[in-house]
């Protein structure tokens, strides 16, 4: 049971870690100081949540017993994040689209996690809810601004949404371990808000004068540790220090 909970926590937290890492790449390179500050802020929130999750997970695992070992000392196949969050910052439209497609899910997920029977997860969710609500407002506002802005921005954000759409369904994929955790009352049954997720997305895209993609071809694999080609490069940066200088304190 301990191991199941450990795996379940990674399935939540790895999303935040990899998305936080992606946002961290942008610092100093964004379209304005204001957006730089906002993206850094979101990255900070996500990584703050990651630390709480991993600190909890570290108590449940025998091999990796600290937040940093969990964050840095796994092989690629052991990271359980969805493919969406590892997609690159191709341009600001992709950054915002990725954030938006994740944030809507994340907020619904955290709201449900508040009802978990696991009190540590509830405490993390209670703290995170304000943060993820802010993230969702930020990314939704930008979707509308870019969609209903200029012709160029409309086209760019539509392309980004269309391209990333294929990664949305995986957010709702339930692994056998997820099913177990739901049964135990600790996990979140994402199936219950899948329709809400797509309805919320659709309503914001409408407001943004954007089309909701109709494609039903979806990618998956991240939740089983099978990632896109981007992941190795993300981990090369993320793990660089810990791999080059193992067993040291920083």
């Amino acid at each position: 049971m301990k191991q199941d909970l450990y795996t379940y926590i990674l399935g939540i937290a790895d999303n935040n870690l990899i998305l936080g890492q992606r946002l961290g790449e942008l610092c100093g390179h964004g379209p304005s100081l204001e957006t730089d500050i906002a993206c850094t802020n979101i990255s900070l929130d996500l990584l703050g949540q990651v630390r709480s999750y991993y600190q909890y997970a570290a108590q449940l695992n025998e091999r990796l017993t600290s937040e940093d070992q969990i964050a840095f000392m796994r092989t690629e196949r052991e990271y359980l994040n969805v493919l969406l969050v590892e997609q690159p910052n191709t341009n600001f439209a992709y950054t915002i689209a990725r954030q938006f497609l994740y944030d809507i899910f994340h907020k619904l997920f955290i709201q449900n996690l508040q009802n978990s029977t696991d009190q540590t997860l509830v405490a993390i969710a209670n703290k995170a809810i304000k943060e993820v609500s802010y993230h969702q407002r930020f990314s939704s506002d930008w979707i509308v601004r870019l969609g209903d802005g200029t012709d160029e921005s409309h086209e760019k954000i539509q392309t980004a949404i269309d391209d990333l759409w294929t990664y949305t369904n995986e957010l709702f994929q339930l692994t056998p371990n997820d099913e177990q955790m739901i049964k135990a009352g600790k996990g979140v049954n994402t199936a219950l808000f899948k329709d809400t997720y797509y309805a919320q997305i659709n309503s914001i895209l409408n407001e943004a004068t954007l089309a909701t993609p109709q494609s039903k071809w979806f990618q998956k694999g991240g939740k089983e540790g099978i990632h896109t080609e981007h992941m190795g490069y993300i981990l090369s940066d993320l793990q660089y220090m810990q791999r080059t200088y193992p067993n040291m304190e920083w």
Binding site: P31, S32, T35, F92, R145, L146, T150, S153, K156
Partner: peptide
């Protein structure tokens, strides 16, 4: 690279 974003806003 941020020009189109600022224009859109």
């Amino acid at each position: 690279e941020g020009e189109w974003v600022r224009d859109a806003a």
